[in-house]
């Protein structure tokens, strides 16, 4: 099994996300994360999908998704030529005596504290999936109360693969 990150440009139609996620579930493809948001041109939505499978499956995923009527473009975001980011919010149990060490760890990872209560903190952290995984590993000594990860969003580097939307 290997992972690939796909970037999709789709028509911003009602139900487009369910058409894409439905295709993954009915064909039994593994989806690790999916993120979607409207682009600068409101006719389109950009979707980033992380999928897992062998070469044949990953090739089929690309072709079957491309076949959907709403999909204008799908291509792989090759790691060397792309930038990926994920955002995570972690709510950790933090009593007064634990707070300093948690804050120190968060600082190393450039995390932001977005909520503080008597016995908890919410840390917001952005980065590659491996950075977030590493941060969460360091928090294992504490009690993680809640965790929300967005899944990755990505873009290719430079202007080579930009699709101009003025048709």
């Amino acid at each position: 099994m290997q992972k690939k990150v796909f970037q999709l440009l789709v028509d911003n139609n009602p139900g487009v996300l369910s058409r894409i996620s439905g295709l993954f579930s009915r064909r039994g493809y593994n989806i690790e994360s999916i993120t979607a948001g409207v682009t600068a041109d409101s006719r389109y939505t950009r979707i980033t999908i992380v999928a897992a499978g062998d070469d044949v499956i990953l090739d089929q995923i690309e072709k079957q998704v491309a076949k959907l009527v709403d999909v204008r473009d799908i291509h792989e975001l090759i790691p060397a030529d792309s930038v990926y980011r994920e955002l995570a919010m972690v709510k950790v149990r933090a009593h007064a005596d634990q707070r300093q060490s948690i804050l120190a760890t968060a600082n190393v990872f450039r995390g932001n504290i977005v909520d503080v209560s008597i016995d908890s903190l919410i840390i917001e952290i952005t980065g590659s999936q491996s950075k977030i995984d590493a941060f969460l590993k360091l928090l294992e000594g504490y009690e993680i109360l809640e965790l929300a990860r967005t899944g990755i969003a990505g873009l290719g580097r430079g202007t080579d693969n930009v699709i101009y939307l003025d048709d």
């Binding site: 044949v56 090739d59 089929q60 072709k63 079957q64 491309a66 076949k67």
Partner: peptide
């Protein structure tokens, strides 16, 4: 005519 059929069951 369907590119997704090519390579689905046989390469």
């Amino acid at each position: 005519v369907d590119p997704a059929e090519i390579g689905k069951n046989v390469g």
